[in-house]
Nucleic acid binder design. Structure first.
Length: 446
RNA sequence: GGCCCUAUCGUCUAACGGUUAGGACAUCGGCUUUUCAAGCCGAUAAUCGGGGUUCGAUUCCCCGUGGGGUCACCA
């Protein structure tokens, strides 16, 4: 148990050698939650000591992703700007006999610095795994810097965590094997040992660590596809953590309140996009119409521009479509899928107008004529789904619902699967609905 | 391969050593001879194997096995 009075400080320390994927974002989230829960500080540290592999574009991606997820940090550091600090420790370690200069480095820019391994057993406590023991003999005299100016990962991490007063190191399970080296360095520089929390990894479909190969895309791509940050946060939190009861939907504030290191899972979790989709759809269903319309609109732009339908009131028309789609879509990018009939007249074979239990097209034609007749008397301003349904329903029940409603729907959409014809007719409006019914009729006659 | 971590439905997971092993996603079916969806209801589906400890192990211990991670002058 950490000292009650000790300031909680956590950090997320990505290296900008790749995008921010869900694995990294989830690590950031857990650090964020724990810091906020304890009125502590959440620190972002860009580990860009490797100038070869570090790229500004990746750093931008990471920053952008954290911002989108609203995981705001209290302090930010770049290791590339801290070489003087590392140098100081390096010199101290060499002077103290904890490290020594060895052979010339590969670039020929000075001598590498090796840590003088005391070859001891290191025991440390992990908050979620308990005691872990390593024999450091197998580590050898590992390299901690390419030269005094160029520190390597282990040295930089330990110095920074110490200098920044990090109380809890919450990181991926892949950090476990790095821990003994880091503890060795800690002891050498007289640093306090932080609390270690190694969280389980997020795995790809093939059970291996998330990497570029299987869906380790930037969280920003989830943004582009129309996922809500709140949904992604909720989803990621439940990968390796749960509240212990059966609740599933948690806002960030609820997470902050209920998050607990003790309830973190020990084994890895496979990233399951179906579950993310479901969760996102839950959040979409709760959105108000205006906000939803605003966020969906970009995904409809092309269809609107190329539309062959003339809109009486485009804004209303699109809003109605989005309202219909709200129940259906998992993410905003799906809003335009399978709704082409709202933007152009459907194309279909006349045989499609036949309900499965019917084989007489002339009957289908008379049904279409009857629907046309019934709808003609409806006032344009009353051309609402409910009214349309009431107008047609009696006839449909009398003739067999499938016999009447299937061709009605087919005439409007040309699709075997779509929303019901009443809803669609309302959106299309009286004029367009009647036109499509007429086209269907002519098709049969032809 | 060495070292380390780990093991409940297909997936995410719940279960003070005593439960008909629970929930969610996905799948399938019903409400519904109008469809997609939503909703409600229902179904299929799991404690890796072997030894212990115990009156009793999903739970504790050991050994296997499976899975993962890590073994750079990367982070």
């Amino acid at each position: 148990m950490p000292d009650e009075n000790k300031k909680i400080r956590t950090r997320f320390a990505p290296s900008p050698t790749g995008v921010l994927h869900v694995g990294g974002a989830r690590t950031a989230l857990f650090n964020y939650l724990f810091a906020r829960q304890n009125s502590g500080k959440f620190i972002l540290r860009i580990e860009d000591t490797d100038t070869e592999r570090s790229k500004k574009e990746f750093e931008k991606d990471i920053l952008k992703g954290l911002k989108w997820l609203k995981l705001d940090y209290d302090e930010i550091y770049h290791q590339s700007k801290r070489t003087d600090i590392y140098k100081k420790y390096l010199q101290k370690m060499v002077a103290g006999g904890f490290a020594y200069k060895a052979e010339e480095n590969k670039e020929g820019t000075g001598k590498i610095i090796r840590f003088k391994n005391p070859n001891i057993k290191i025991k440390f406590n992990d908050e979620i795994r308990g005691e872990i023991e390593f024999n450091t003999t197998e580590l050898g005299d590992f390299v901690i810097a390419k030269n005094e100016e160029i520190p390597l990962y282990h040295l930089a991490v330990v110095v920074d965590d110490f200098e920044m007063g990090i109380s809890h190191i919450i990181r991926g399970e892949d950090g476990i094997s790095n821990t003994p080296r880091q503890i060795l360095i800690q002891d050498a520089i007289g640093a306090l040992r932080p609390v270690y929390v190694h969280i389980p990894l997020i795995l790809g479909a093939d059970r291996s660590k998330l990497s570029k190969r299987h869906g380790a895309v930037s969280v920003n791509e989830y943004c582009e596809q129309g996922y809500l940050p709140e949904a992604l946060i909720n989803f990621m939190a439940f990968l390796g953590w749960n509240p212990g009861d059966e609740r599933e939907i948690f806002s960030i504030n609820e997470l902050i309140k209920e998050f607990s290191l003790k309830k973190i899972q020990k084994s890895g979790a496979i990233f399951n996009i179906d579950r993310l989709n479901w969760m996102n759809s839950e959040y979409i269903k709760k959105m108000d119409a205006d906000n939803l319309a605003k966020l969906c609109l970009p995904y409809l732009k092309d269809k609107i521009r190329n539309s062959k339908i003339k809109f009486a009131n485009q804004e209303e028309y699109i809003k109605k479509i989005i309202k219909i789609e709200q129940k259906r879509i998992n993410k905003f990018s799906e809003v335009g899928e399978g709704v082409d009939y709202f933007f152009e007249r459907p194309k279909y074979e006349k045989e499609k107008l036949l309900w499965k239990d019917e084989n007489d097209l002339s009957k289908t034609k008379s049904h279409l004529e009857k629907i046309t007749e019934l709808l003609s008397v409806l006032d344009e301003n009353n051309f609402m789904s409910q009214n349309i349904k009431e107008t047609v329903w009696g006839y449909a029940e009398e003739q067999g619902k499938g016999n009447v409603l299937w061709p009605f729907r087919m005439a409007l959409t040309g699709m075997e699967r779509s929303p019901d014809p009443f809803t669609i007719a309302e959106v299309l409006g009286k004029e367009e609905t009647l036109s499509r019914l007429k086209i269907a009729k002519l098709k049969i006659e032809a």
